[in-house]
Design a protein around this nucleic acid. Structure first.
Lengths: 125, 125
DNA sequence: CTTGAAGTTAACGTTAACGTAAATGGTAGT
DNA sequence: ACTACCATTTACGTTAACGTTAACTTCAAG
């Protein structure tokens, strides 16, 4: 169990941000006797997912869907199948992103090689 | 050479967006006799880079630096070395992102496997 | 040479994702 | 019980990244 400031410190975000995620129903911590938020290990994992999602430009709304995917315990098979379909879509998007990023990486690597060549020649002449 | 609406259509963005990128000095198209914007092949490439950068959550300010990296033709060796250093930093960031994304991909794949197992069992009993 | 589509600048509007401040309540150590 | 610090809600403020509107100009087709 974590207090809000503990999470904030660990992830280097503000408590406001964490409470904001609760406003959007991305997190739903339990409360203590005195009405203070108590975050479980599961909340901790969810917050990690949220922050990771943000780093790839997903909106909080999109992240909400992904987080819900991780917390769902669908009972009916119909619901399960819809969940799988949605998950596969997300997975495809992510695969595309990985490929694009790899391409960008290659472009930058080539660019840097060119530059290093130029430095060499500049030094030798 | 492209007109602004041609670029907008090709990339499915608004002309306002393209002009906004010019406000931020991300693009600097030439002008026709009648003061209309004409985009070169180089501008076309830059716009691709900008949109790709956006998909990974980079801000336009950050993208500006990356785009400038691609258009720089540094003459002095000192400047070249600084450019390389900067490029290497960016490259590291991108590598980290690729790794994180791959991890997320694995997690989702496992999740989907679990779900598919559950569907199977649900069908068989 | 007119006419409609597409271009221009300037300026104000909008939304997501928080920041910040105020007023107040809870908690832990002495 | 006092102190210092953390928590709470409410509400207004801020910034990036455009959208939208207005008032006009330029281009291309007939």
């Amino acid at each position: 169990m974590f207090k809000i400031s503990e999470l904030a410190n660990e992830f280097s975000i503000s408590t406001r941000t964490i409470r904001y995620y609760e406003e959007l129903h991305l997190l739903t911590p339990a409360r203590t006797d005195g009405n203070q938020r108590m975050y479980s290990k599961g909340d901790h994992v969810k917050l990690q997912l949220i922050l990771r999602g943000k780093r790839y430009g997903f909106t909080l709304e999109e992240i909400k869907e992904m987080v819900q995917l991780f917390e769902l315990d669908p009972s009916g098979v119909k619901q399960l199948e819809r969940t799988i379909t949605f998950g596969e879509k997300r997975l495809n998007e992510i695969t595309i992103r990985i490929n694009e990023l790899s391409q960008l990486k290659n472009e930058m690597e080539n660019l840097l090689l060119e530059f290093r060549e130029r430095v060499k020649k500049g030094e030798k002449t």
